[in-house]
Nucleic acid binder design. Structure first.
Lengths: 182, 182
DNA sequence: TTCATTTAGTTAGCCGGCTAACTAAATGAA
DNA sequence: TTCATTTAGTTAGCCGGCTAACTAAATGAA
């Protein structure tokens, strides 16, 4: 069975009804648009992750291979990779252990600092990266194939705008912690 | 420390260089735009999930409360909830067990079909839902606050277009399974 | 009426995230 | 030079996803 994220999506009417019931003066458009955004991402990402998985990779593992490929001596520290990828140390620890088992990276204790392990891209890792990369390029190209140059520009603009607004949600959360709970 | 998803993003130049190296005739724009899309979603979603977590909920738990609220007798079967939410049976099984422990739902074996458990929204569950809902509306409103009506319409249009293109990635994967592996 | 098939749900175990708590090593101020 | 502090990494255990394999009950064709 093929699962579709969030099958039962509320209609604008239902969103409006609920808002009225709660005496909220809001437009249902924004809620609906946020759901559209989430759905679009999740459906696209599901197919993208599935493509990546065909190569025995995950998106994170692929990006780690890219980081190593571009690093000096094709080598980085776990903490550097964690920072670049934007994940915590325990997460990178698990990912690298898995990639080492796959033979995509190798790691050795550093001589200069014995707390540290140098993570090295293996030839197998580089080979897999080169095999997958064309598919990665193609997937993005296909995804935006039907977009005009103007539409692509618009989309980038709207995404930037959205990204800037994310702090407002954080602000809302802080307001709740300060006042809302009482 | 505040983590930022995927800190080290490749520049268009780097994307172009790699494409040249692989002799791929692709524009780096699409790859870059896909990364923008992923980043925007993940950053927004991170803050949204954090807001939801302030109410001892996750997005999935919140949506389940909504389904139950709108259901006849405020009651559904696990399999119905799984279908509406678009997740597998094991996932819903875990979620509902957690929500029952929180006291948000209760469940009882059905008389008519003994394989089945009726999941019921509790008064505590409904109360929490009513507390959180205004924040949910506000978060979406804030997110799109700076969008003009036209921009919202454009965004919805572009997201629909993107959603339609997701099948091309699946097609690419099928092509790989058939031909690419040889 | 029986028995193979279907349906509903759970359990085990994996992945990629997280936090909390830990060990080991390096650092730097007194 | 010492020792508190910082830094690097791991382990345990949680969450929300998944697949595979299972049990129990309902169903429907012979």
């Amino acid at each position: 069975m093929s699962y579709y994220n969030f099958v039962d999506r509320p209609s604008k009417q239902r969103i409006q009804e609920m808002a009225d019931q709660l005496h909220l003066k809001v437009s249902p458009d924004a809620v609906h648009l946020f759901l559209d955004f989430q759905l679009a991402y999740r459906e696209v990402e599901k197919n993208y992750e599935s493509l990546v998985a065909s190569f025995d990779l995950s998106e994170s593992r692929f990006i780690i291979l890219m980081f190593l490929y571009y690093a000096e001596d094709k080598q980085l520290l776990p903490s550097e990779i964690a920072h670049k990828l934007g994940v915590t140390k325990p997460t990178i620890s698990k990912l690298l252990r898995g990639m080492a088992q796959q033979g995509l990276v190798s790691s050795h204790q550093s001589q200069s600092d014995k707390r540290v392990r140098d993570v090295q891209l293996t030839t197998a890792g580089e080979k897999l990266l080169r095999t997958f990369l064309p598919y990665n390029y193609r997937s993005s190209s296909l995804l935006f194939e039907d977009f005009t140059a103007e539409e692509k520009q618009q989309f980038a603009h709207l995404l930037r705008k959205l990204l800037k607004s994310k702090d407002k949600i954080q602000q809302l959360e802080e307001d709740y912690h300060e006042h809302g709970k009482n």
